[in-house]
Design a protein around this nucleic acid. Structure first.
Length: 403
RNA sequence: GCUGGGAUAGCGAAGUGGUCAAACGCAUCUGACUGUAAAUCAGACGGCCUUGUGCCUUCGGGGGUUCGACUCCCUCUCCCAGCACCA
């Protein structure tokens, strides 16, 4: 199957400068970047990463960019107000985090990591204005949709720095075109405007045609909202921000309607396999075949097979009312043999509640269970060991030390 | 720089001297129903405890008036609009 066919059936086609997407079927050099606004990608970035994987698998040369320079400014697109600048230390930490995740997700594949700070740090302001700024029309820059929404009566304002963001990104493309022969930028749907700036620069300065390929914004099909938001905020790739178990659970809980599409985006399963899972889910939805496969596959890609197996096992054991979980997917609280525990304190310490008020609220609303028994009295001490459950899917194992 | 408008909980948005921890909507959490789904319904949603017509901290920052301020006055910061400046 060619790349254009692969991207088509998986639904990765959004907007592109290619007249005919078959142009993708002969290998070229492309780049994709993640903004270091955090030290981890979210599953929003992951969808694009999976798209990039298909490019690499079909023989395209990948340049993966960490936006050290762009991160210093902050992408204003899609934001409704000016953002605080990040410290250099924070950007460095974020860059390191993103680069590490590139290496993990694309392990075994051929790619090169670059940082746009490397070519911006030596570039003077005047040089930049002369070489890049001169080629941008103020009218066009002002006409951009997000600029219009930020200025004017109901806008929250925009600084010159953020306003200029797309010039920086545009220059990235020019630079990578010149130095690395990149003729294609792959990006998320929201990056079209920023990306096109690069295409124009290349046309004006080099007289060459470069291209853009944007992937779709993944939405939750049942709510129409951006996909990947959950109780704790975003779903992160970093297991310290979203535990492997929570990550697995997130996928396990996606809605039926969206599951087939998520399989196409987030796994490397074949068209036949996905079609089969879709059928199975339609026939007996309660088996959640698509969700189970999805959860396992995505967890495997992001966290490795061992972790995926462990998350799957823990989930099965929980479901079978077997509290003797024998892996470390569920956090453990180890206490003395005869300690009497205060449930409120346990919930707060284990971060299962945001504070004491929240913990008490959970108990009074019947959201806390110990060994399958609802805890109704916040003062009742906890004795013995077993599984503590908060809400539907948050758990803590309480164990006694044998002293 | 001048004139006018604005800043309220995660977001949006009421409130214009006391009944305000602050309406309402969204988001979120819990429960019920289910299939660990969706939809629906119910409750919660600043913090703390001795759970009470309880205490503490909040309505951009600081100060003041008042028995009492989210509400009035002064001042600072930031945003928006128009004007001026750049021309």
């Amino acid at each position: 199957m060619t790349l254009s066919e692969e991207l088509s059936w998986r639904g990765f086609v959004n907007q592109t400068t290619f007249g005919d997407i078959k142009a993708l079927d002969k290998p070229l050099t492309f780049y994709w970047g993640v903004d270091p606004s955090s030290d981890s990608m979210t599953i929003g970035n992951l969808a694009l990463a999976m798209m990039v994987r298909h490019f690499i698998d079909h023989g395209h040369k990948a340049i993966l960019l960490v936006g050290g320079a762009t991160g210093m400014i902050g992408d204003p697109d899609g934001k409704n107000e000016e953002r605080d600048l990040k410290s250099l230390e924070e950007i460095q930490k974020n860059k390191d985090g993103i680069a590490a995740q590139y290496r993990r997700i694309f392990a075994g594949q051929d790619f090169e990591i670059v940082d746009n700070y490397d070519w911006f740090k030596g570039l003077g302001y005047l040089d930049f204005l002369r070489e890049v700024g001169k080629h941008f029309s103020m009218t066009q820059l002002l006409d951009r949709e997000f600029v219009q929404s930020r200025i004017g009566k109901d806008g929250k304002g925009i600084s010159y720095a953020e306003f200029s963001y797309s010039l920086i990104q545009g220059y990235d493309f020019l630079h990578l075109f010149r130095k690395k022969g990149a003729t294609l930028q792959v990006a998320g749907a929201d990056q079209w405007g920023n990306s096109i700036a690069g295409v124009e620069l290349i046309r004006k300065l080099e007289g060459k045609t470069a291209h853009i390929w944007t992937g779709p914004l993944v939405i939750n099909t049942s709510t129409g909202m951006k996909f990947g938001k959950t109780e704790g905020g975003a779903v992160w790739i970093d297991p310290n921000k979203t535990s492997v178990f929570d990550f697995y659970q997130f996928w396990l809980n996606v809605d039926d309607a969206g599951a087939p599409q998520y399989l196409k985006f987030y796994t490397l399963l074949s068209q036949e396999e996905i079609k089969h899972l879709e059928q199975e889910t339609k026939q007996s939805p309660k088996n959640r075949a698509a969700q189970k496969k999805l959860a396992y596959e995505v967890t495997k890609i992001v966290h490795g097979k061992a972790q995926a197996d462990a998350a799957k096992q823990a989930t099965e054991q929980l479901n079978g009312a077997d509290t003797a979980i024998n892996n470390d997917m569920i956090p453990i609280l180890s206490v003395g043999q005869s300690d009497e525990l205060n449930i409120i304190k346990v919930l707060v310490d284990a971060k299962l509640a945001t504070g004491q008020s929240d913990a008490k609220r959970l108990v009074s609303q019947g959201g806390v269970r110990f060994k399958d028994l609802k805890i109704t009295d916040q003062f009742e001490p906890i004795r013995g060991e077993g599984l503590l459950q908060v809400g539907k899917r948050r758990f803590l194992r309480i164990q006694r030390k044998s002293d």
